[in-house]
Design a protein around this nucleic acid. Sequence first.
RNA 1: GUGGCUGUAGCUCAGUUGGUUAGAGCACCAGGUUGUGAUCCUGGGGGUCGGGGGUUCAAAUCCCCUCAGCCACCCCA
Length: 430
Amino acid sequence: MKLQGPKGTRDFYPDDQARRRYIHDAWRRVSVRHGFDEVDGPIYETLDLYKVKSGDGIVSELFSFRRANGTTDYAIRPEFTPTLARMVAARANALPRPIKWFALPNMCRAERHQRGRLREFDQWNVDLLGLDTPLADAEVIAVACDLLAELGVTPAMVQCRISHREVVRQILAALGVADDKMQDAFTLLDAKGKMTPEQFTDKAVALGLGKEQVARFDAMCGKTYAVGDVDALRDAAGIDDDLADLRALDATLAGFGLADWCAYDLGIVRGLAYYTGTVFELHVTVSDERALGGGGRYDKLIELFGGPAMSGVGFGMGDVVLANLLEDQGLLPEHLAPTPDAFVLAASDLGATHLPGLVATLRRAGLHTRMSYKQTRNLGKLLKDAEKARARFAVLLDDTAAEGQAQVKDLATGEQSPCAITDLAQQLRL
RNA sequence: GUGGCUGUAGCUCAGUUGGUUAGAGCACCAGGUUGUGAUCCUGGGGGUCGGGGGUUCAAAUCCCCUCAGCCACCCCA
């Protein structure tokens, strides 16, 4: 019988898990620093919950199941937003505002895996609800950019491309797109990168645009505008609105010191129909990766899940593309597993009798302590064990252990000195 | 769901027009150099050559099917 993991899933051996922890720790550390509280939910929900936002079509992309003799359909979570919306809706009136939550769920999607996409992955979710000012949008973008900086990523590697659904809607309307064609226009814009200019023009004309207007719109979408450059964007758009919302966002982004990370790109749409305002995506610019993450404002979402009217803005970032980026850019430290404070070894048979007691003492003192399991008294081999474990200190027990002495060797400098066993825990802490 | 490429040890790979019992390096385990992290030496474990079927006296090698991996399409909550 051959046993292998399900396709598109990963096994995390110690080095892999250490790397995963490195990313999770950064996600958690930066989230907390920005004032977000960690939450989580069940790893599966009723299937119906996932249909609320995405419709029945979502079902084929889920791992859904039903208990033997059961009648309820469930699905392993493919995203966290429905769980979050359900949690917020259930206690909407009791939660202090604004609600600032983050989560580090793993999730499963029944898609064909490829580079940057697996069937099970971890995703960092950050949401800020109950605050409808651009400050909220900016804060969510800020935590995303800060995470990247925390891991050594620079604006030369990743850009946060920002658009605004309402601004784009106004531009499209000014160009002559009727309200009932607006959704189609967004869909077309989203698909623009995957078609030839001729195909794009043909489809745009079908939506009621003239060729001249298409060309103008096309030129606008192919260009990005820097933070502080909203006037240029407005001039190019040819609309009368003063874009107050976008200007406020712009000023806050600049205030947060994010001008280097961000640029406005009206070609950013996001597939999701439920975004209502700001939308953004994190794009790797130094290699050909799929988007690192993205998000936006979703002011109708909580209502959709049966809660009160509540604005919100959030984003998600997957671990797979992020790990690819860090790997490619040489940003993953080589050794990520926790290293021992002490590595105890017996240099003589008499010393060996004192080994368990010393190990236990050091561990109770809170020191990460390992030992050699080898029978040999060959110090060269024993020290090699200590080195391979990447311990800071080796503690050698020889016959002097009977008199309460041990030898402490600093494995980085090679310096060695005697130390009373009773003082060891204290000494090694320094 | 569609298409392309690839599967030999944990990893990187050899393996002749099909020809004994499938190899190397690294890694892992044990021992030696009578000893304080190096180098070196010796030995060991580990592969039904992704799996199944077929052709043949003979298959890692040729054919078919299947599974898995990578890449792209689709999708991307």
